[in-house]
Design a protein around this nucleic acid. Structure first.
Length: 374
RNA sequence: AGGGGGUUCGUUCAACGGCAGGACGCUGGCCUUUGAAGCCAUGAAUGUAGGUUCGAUUCCUACACCCCCUG
């Protein structure tokens, strides 16, 4: 009664235990696909203090109940080793270098749409689907990601690094739905997770925070917080507790709020200053993943999840992506990703290595080097 | 040791003798598949002992502590 073609197509749906993936699975079932739910076991032990936010036992149980309600089979696949080696290892390493990684970007590229997709294909599935809010469109250079219909929920920022060759085998059933519609579908279908709260933090970081997570894995030495002239104005609890642009947690009172301007891993210190010092006009990124050519005219660039894309121009030279913004942007942070969009279409992106500033924007008399290179 | 200035939330700065207020920090909430940012909100102080006054953070006295100048 539905699309006959789909009857034969097998889809593996990644189920996190949340509403979105549950609805995705349900929709695919309705569309006539042969659907199997899969939850990744990432080997993340619940911390003594709090529970793990996803990938934990409760989440697996929720996913199982969803599958029972929809009437599909549910598997659990173990990716603990991959997570540890490909995501957590680099994550810890980045923090030691004083940069702020985005493990979700890496996880999507290497685990979900890397190892998991590979496994799905090997098991005879035609597609891997997830509950991401993202679209896939046809372009002159092949399939590319595109923003979801619900701009508020669009998650393409986290997905830009997935390989283009994966796209023919990927489905995003929620691409044209709003969050409200998804909630409603979940409620109409009596999915057991329809009222589950939003928001998940980094899945392998336990509830008691990143500082305690890093404690066992990295040198977590306290050090000085200095102003842009190098004067000590406070102490920090270890570089891994800070990111550029951060205001909370410095514990320093001053006439104006202070922000983390730069992180100097070599000297184990944090440079803090007023908000205006967060501005930079451009950036250089590497580890690129491009779907299409960069148009000559203006595009928009997103510096950070939650950042409003800003008008910029971009070009790739020598393997590096150079981006310059029309207006200076705040808190361009090494380790975070720059993602370029041409309207709705995702052009590609990369990992920010450093921000570039005009000479007259340099804050202190002798901090140029550390601030530029951060 | 002598002279001068000062002491108010955690920090910093206000308050004609009339309910002690702001900023920053801290804490909580909203937002959010990266600890950002932003927005909203709560809490929190007159150094000690006397005096004048209807009423003292404010005026007076003593003490304690801090800062500056001078041997």
């Amino acid at each position: 009664m539905f699309i006959k073609e789909n009857m034969k197509k097998k889809v593996m749906v990644g189920l996190s235990g949340g509403v979105d993936s549950a609805v995705a699975a349900s929709l695919l079932k309705d569309q006539g696909y042969e659907v199997v739910g899969v939850t990744m076991c990432l080997g993340v032990a619940p911390s003594p203090g709090g529970k793990t936010k996803c990938c934990g036992p409760e989440e697996i149980e929720d996913a199982r109940r969803v599958c029972r309600t929809i009437g599909i089979r549910h598997y659990i696949l173990d990716f603990a080793r991959e997570l540890e080696e490909e995501i957590i290892g680099p994550f810890v390493r980045d923090y030691r270098l004083g940069i702020t990684p985005n493990p979700c970007v890496a996880c999507n590229a290497q685990i979900k749409f890397g190892a998991l997709l590979e496994k799905a294909l090997a098991m005879g599935f035609d597609f891997l689907a997830t509950g991401h809010y993202a679209g896939i469109v046809e372009t002159d250079s092949g399939l590319a990601l595109a923003k979801a219909w619900d701009k508020r929920k669009d998650q393409t920022y986290f997905l830009y690094a997935i390989p283009q060759k994966a796209l023919p085998n990927v489905l995003f059933p929620l691409s044209d739905l709003t969050k409200e519609e998804v909630r409603k579908i979940a409620a109409d279908k009596n999915l057991p997770v329809s009222n589950k709260p939003e928001s998940q933090d980094i899945c392998f970081i336990p509830a008691d925070g990143i500082s305690s997570f890093m404690k066992g894995r990295s040198n977590h030495e306290p050090g000085h917080i200095v102003d842009i002239n190098g004067n000590t104005i406070g102490r920090h609890r270890g570089i891994a507790s800070y990111t550029i642009g951060q205001r909370t947690g410095l514990g320093i009172s001053s006439p104006m709020p202070l922000y983390v301007i730069s992180i100097d891993a070599e000297k184990n210190r944090i440079i803090a200053g007023e908000r205006k010092y967060l501005l930079a006009v451009g950036l250089v990124a590497d580890t690129l993943n491009m779907f299409t050519e960069i148009p000559a005219e203006k595009v928009s660039g997103k510096i950070r999840y939650g950042h409003r894309p800003a008008a910029c121009s971009a070009e790739i030279t020598g393997g590096y992506l150079h981006v310059s913004f029309e207006k200076p942007q705040e808190a361009i942070t090494p380790g975070q990703s720059i993602v370029l969009y041409d309207g709705e279409k995702l052009i590609g992106g990369g990992i920010i290595r450093f921000a570039t500033r005009r000479v007259e924007e340099l804050p202190g008399p002798h901090q140029e080097k550390s601030i530029i290179s951060n």
